[in-house]
Amino acid sequence: MSLTLEQVQRIAHLARIEVSEAEALTTQSHLNGIFQLIEQMQAVDTRGVEPMAHAQDLSQRLRQDAVTEPDGRAAFQAVAPEVEAGLYLVPKVIE
């Protein structure tokens, strides 16, 4: 398997990372090298093997429904790039 430049650009957009044409070429060669390594997996017959998503075969622990978090807006927004009237500002969202 080998990624085309178009695929590289498509993934970059999925991940919202701007990649210039020059960068795309390097990225393509790096990714293809890595996928060559990854491809080793394809030789293995894993039929009937239960996928393992977590390091533990346990069940999820739950919390009680209680309000435990006070308003921390001032502290949280102190590190924000742009806020106004308690809102985070971003370029206009178009629906």
Partner: peptide, 29 residues
């Protein structure tokens, strides 16, 4: 950025089973 892109790719439509699920099965092995 490389790893984010690898991750986005292996989870993307059409590749999930071949990469992500296969890796999870190998993880079990």
């Amino acid at each position: 950025k490389r790893r984010i892109m690898i991750g986005a790719y292996v989870l993307s439509h059409g590749y999930y089973d071949a990469y992500y699920l296969q890796a999870q099965r190998i993880r079990r092995l």
